[in-house]
Design a protein around this nucleic acid. Sequence first.
DNA 1: ATGACTTTCACCGAAAGA
Length: 256
Amino acid sequence: MKIATYNVNGINGRLPRLLEWLEESQPDIACLQEIKTSNETFPLEAIHGAGYGAIWSGQKSYNGVAILARDATPVERLRELPGGVDDTHSRYIEAEVDGVVVASLYLPNGNPQPGPRFDYKLAWFERFNQHAKSLLKEKRPVVLAGDYNVVPTDFDIYDTRSWLNDALLQPESRAAYAALLKQGWTDAIRAKHPDERIYTFWDYLRNRWPRNAGLRIDHLLLSPDLAAHLVDANVDREQRGKEKASDHAPTWVVLG
DNA sequence: ATGACTTTCACCGAAAGA
């Protein structure tokens, strides 16, 4: 089973790229972030045409997440992260597909920091970690896939110099991610490639794709039982080099 | 310190992204 996460940066504007990638990569499950569309304008017909069922939690202009499943419709479990009071952002959706619990999450960026946006990021992260803990208690196969907006270590970025004040590298952000892993989750890309620099995002600015000045911020976390079945994990880097590409590349795992 | 690039909405500039 192949499960992917892909921050599309606008699903309608990105639709040709998304459909090409689905055809080329053939994921069984695709978790999407930043669909940037209201629920009414989600391109369901095109997704169906590609052979996928879908559930989504949209929001006009910003945020928005979805879960696609090949030849199946994901069975929705949640369409928002529990514990949110006055949280109007569409950043979380969770479903069951083929016996696996799958979450598609879009963790807040948090810039500028310090400030209310960074406070929101850390609060959202804390809520997410609490929910993740409750998922582990279910003792079921779970994949937490998405754009975490965290560069876990200095090994996950080309160079820290331009990013030292960025919310993605702050000690608080990294501590929250480390605490999540410590619950028992496996960072699939890092588990499969412990000694390789791997990136999932290259900013549109400053020629960062041609320079391979990337960051690893899209992650797939596996529950302990699933981690034992990890066969492969990687990034579809070539998608980032296409015309009208998202600034993120699809990232995936294969579970045997 | 700022802006560079891209998407969205909506009306050509603003907001947000990371």
